[in-house]
Amino acid sequence: MRREIPLVITFVVGVVFVISYFIPHYPFNEFESWFTDWFSIVGAFAIWLGALNLMKISTLKIVKQKKDWPFSALTIVSFLIIVIFGFYGGKGFRDPGTTFDWLYVYVYTALSSTMFALLAFFVASASYRAFRARNFEATLLLVAAFFVMLGRVPVGDMITGFLPLEYQMSHWANWVMNILNTAGQRAIMIGIALGLVSTSLRVILGLERSYLGGD
């Protein structure tokens, strides 16, 4: 029964979602929104599991004085601060001017932006490796990237300004992006769509059940 009930639930929910896509009326649309709500409810309860797990693992690290335990202490302190100010703020805890809002805007958002900004440096290091002309394919990539990057900045068109408009660098950059790149992307998208259908079918029919634990 531990296996059969989840499989039956998966089958029913999957079939209802497929039917409601083609027949968006009662009762299928009702069932669809009902199942979506249930997923949200289960997910909301599961957040407690996650939070407790985070606290448990961090506390154990501190108690056992494991390597790098101060990071765990910082995690617990940060978690408690944001939770306490969240509850203290009541229903309007996210309103502008509240302590929670201050923490969100001036601490969380700033830290998130810092992490995101790292991307600029990582793009540079990854590009350096990707664009090394080690073989024919990598050289092709390098040449295409050269044209695209040059075509995306004004200096590209300045260099080729003496040519007719349709032969200037920005035109070539657009051609690479709109023709070659789009063709490749579409091939990948078609494969993804077919893979999605096939995987969904396996899951709905219960052929694929390792997500329930085991084969």
């Binding site: 494969g191 077919l194 893979g195």
Partner: peptide
């Protein structure tokens, strides 16, 4: 693993004929 290969991985690794058959079925779509 590019796109569809991610979805094919489970069937591929399992070696289960039923799951491998589902990969072959995708080829008709292609």
């Amino acid at each position: 693993l590019i796109g569809e290969e991610l979805f094919a991985a489970s069937a591929y690794l399992s070696g289960d004929p039923k799951q491998l058959g589902s990969l072959k079925g995708q080829d008709i779509g292609k």
